[in-house]
Nucleic acid binder design. Structure first.
Lengths: 187, 187
DNA sequence: CACTGGTGAGAACGATCGTTCTCACTGATG
DNA sequence: CATCAGTGAGAACGATCGTTCTCACCAGTG
């Protein structure tokens, strides 16, 4: 049960706390308590809170994008369906309990002005997401501009769902995406 | 020069600091110093930091939406042009020095989990913005769903511009909006 | 003049936080 | 058995922050 390696346990605790409550508001002692470890061990694996934050963002980025890609590829439909499946996945994410928007946007708002590492992490996350959508769009025969448009819709849906606490933003964005794809005749 | 009333001076200083650096990272003493006042006077006008934050968000919401409405109404074009002018205004905003995304989204990421007042302020700001776009869309003979789609595009453009530090997101969103409006035949 | 009420300037207070240190203990090694 | 490296548990340290208090000073009033 607690055979999981200490690093993972610390990251699990940090992610739940940082994402759910904010980074600055969560003290290292809260992370220690939630991970069921001693202070010494925590600092043994992450020599400062800043490095823990970076590790949290890095791991979340990888998992988030991997989950999305798995979901989309499993739909197995034509490329155009896969593009729309992105918004279905977003809708599921929005409906998860504890959803509180994009971890990277939140971290950027909190620490973007004082931590270049956070800025870099957020930029990387969003850039990769955009590239992923660009790849799907290319496979669907849609022009690159359309991929950018869908990226903006997805971004807007995330923010909107977070602010209003309403997952329907995903369906709205999906419909807008469908219209944009329709306007672009298939290749 | 410093005939401006103290409340305004404090709010000006607080807004520049809170928006530019984040809320939690800025101490009350920094606000005091930037406003050129004494601690007693600051707390005389805002009995706690929380109330100062609320006042900051409230004032910014009003000014932001008023500036947008003035810009859009001054374009004077047909309703459809006015809808697109919203994105032109966003583009000008993104290009301003010190642009750091939406103050309400930033505040929400920082304090949304611990301050209901911040959540309410952000929700109100975004709801009003959505209503404004809905009004423009109705005047343009576009269905309500289109207004929602344009709102998502605007939201995504703001986030994207903030993350990448690139104002061109406004032009991209404008183009997507134009396509969506085209798909909806004029009434 | 004596007195009162409010102000400026900044010290002081109490809480919190990130980080490090203490100290008793354990388990392997000579 | 003696020793020593490493650990758990938590206290301690130094810095920061929100908020309040002190105190010398000044304006106006009797």
């Amino acid at each position: 049960m607690d055979q999981v390696d200490p690093r993972t346990r610390i990251l699990d605790a940090a992610e739940e706390l940082f994402y759910g409550q904010g980074i600055q508001v969560v003290g290292m002692d809260a992370v220690r308590a939630a991970s069921g470890m001693t202070m010494r061990r925590v600092y043994q694996h992450f020599p400062s809170k800043g490095e823990l934050v970076e590790a949290y963002l890095l791991r979340r980025d990888g998992r988030w994008r991997a989950n999305l890609a798995v979901y989309v590829s499993r739909t197995g439909g034509p490329p155009r369906e896969q593009l729309l499946a992105v918004f279905d996945w977003l809708g599921r994410w929005f409906a998860e309990p504890g959803f509180r928007g994009c971890a990277f946007v939140n971290a950027l708002g909190e620490l973007g002005a004082v931590s270049p590492a956070v800025v870099a992490a957020a930029r990387h996350h969003k850039t990769e997401f955009g590239s992923y959508l660009a790849g799907l769009a290319e496979a669907a025969g849609a022009p690159p501009a359309t991929a950018v448009h869908l990226t903006l819709l997805a971004e807007g849906a995330i923010t909107s769902a977070a602010v209003h606490g309403d997952p329907t933003a995903a369906a709205d964005a999906r419909e807008a995406a469908r219209l944009l794809l329709e306007a672009t005749p298939d290749r």
